[in-house]
Amino acid sequence: MRVALFVTCVNDTLYPRTGQAVVTLLERLGVEVDFPQEQTCCGQPQYNTGYRRQTAPLVKRYSDVFRGYDYVVVPSGSCAAMVRDNYPRVDAEGTADVVARTYELTEFLVDVLGVTDVGAYYPHTVTYHPTCHGLRMLGLGERPRKLLEAVKGLELRELEGARECCGFGGTFAVKNAAVSAAMGTDKARHIEETGADAVCAVDNSCLMHIGGTLSRRGTGVRSVHLAEILASTEEAPL
Rank of each mutant, 00 (worst) to 15 (best):
A56V: 14
L156W: 10
L138D: 00
R52Q: 04
P36C: 09
Q46N: 14
P144V: 12
K60P: 01
G211K: 12
G114H: 07
L140N: 05
R143C: 07
Y15R: 13
D85Q: 15
R216Y: 02
G94K: 10
F172R: 03
V115L: 11
A201V: 05
C206E: 04
A80W: 02
V110M: 06
T55E: 00
G218T: 01
G170H: 04
L154C: 07
G167N: 09
T219Y: 02
K146H: 15
D12G: 11
N11V: 11
T131Y: 10
T55W: 00
M137V: 14
R136M: 04
R157V: 13
D197H: 07
S205R: 08
G167Y: 02
P16R: 12
H133R: 04
E235M: 13
A4F: 05
C42P: 09
S223R: 14
R84T: 04
A227E: 00
T125H: 02
V73L: 13
A96I: 04
D186S: 15
D97C: 02
R143F: 08
N86S: 13
S180F: 08
R157N: 00
T233C: 12
P237W: 11
E27N: 13
T131R: 08
E38G: 01
D70A: 06
G139I: 09
N204P: 11
F172H: 03
H129F: 04
S180Y: 05
E93P: 07
R52N: 01
S76R: 05
D12Y: 11
